[in-house]
């Protein structure tokens, strides 16, 4: 029952997200009737995702064939969700098998997915306030991004300058040798003075 409840929750959330991206929803229509089997090895959990024109349906039980299977530990699925540029086959530890056409379509959908998060905010607080809030968030985002870039470039200049004044190894060795010889000369002079 817990699994059924979790899958019901998951299905609702995925379909809500798909509503924010009509392009992805439209692309998934071409995969109508496909069944994807997700097998998580650590922790042990599996589920079937059915794609149809109305969105996705998640189930813990399926008796028919599947079109594609994705298998790996949870960390690999998180890596897959976060990495939208690499091909699925390049994600180490994730075993991808099944109908190559279905997999290629899914990979393309995953890479091109763009969620209309502004629409979600507008739904909650209204169009005017939502748009203003989204603008504010964009501004904060671009400021943080700009600050990050500035910080990164300043750090590079600082390191470059710092590296210029740091002596290289031969210079340090030569300096050490000079200090040693000076120290010996001072010792010798000190011995002479004490004898005279």
């Amino acid at each position: 029952m817990m699994k059924t409840a979790f899958l019901a929750f998951l299905e609702t959330r995925i379909n809500q997200l798909l509503k924010l991206d009509p392009v992805t929803a439209e692309a998934l229509k071409f995969l109508d009737g496909s069944v994807i089997h997700f097998v998580c090895l650590q922790p042990d959990f599996d589920c079937y995702v059915f794609l149809d024109s109305l969105g996705v349906r998640c189930a813990g039980w399926h008796e028919g064939s599947v079109d594609a299977t994705l298998q790996g530990p949870l960390s690999r699925f998180i890596a897959l969700a976060a990495d939208r540029t690499s091909s699925w086959g390049a994600i180490k530890g994730l075993d991808v098998s099944g109908d190559q056409a279905v997999l290629a379509s899914l990979e393309s959908v995953h890479q091109k997915m763009e969620l209309d998060w502004e629409g979600l905010i507008c739904e909650q607080v209204g169009p005017v306030a939502g748009h203003s809030l989204a603008e504010g968030l964009r501004l904060i985002g671009s400021t943080l991004s700009g600050s990050g870039q500035t910080l990164s470039s300043h750090a590079a200049i600082y390191l470059e300058d710092a590296l210029k004044v740091v002596p290289c190894e031969p210079e340090v060795n030569a300096f050490n040798r000079e200090v040693d010889s000076l120290s010996k000369a001072v010792d010798r002079l000190s011995q002479r003075l004490s004898k005279s």
Binding site: T4, A8, W61, H62, E63, G64
Partner: peptide, 14 residues
């Protein structure tokens, strides 16, 4: 919870 019971029924229906 009746929604979950029915959901499981749908899953088993194939």
């Amino acid at each position: 919870v009746h929604r979950l019971w029915k959901r499981f029924t749908i899953e088993l229906s194939a």
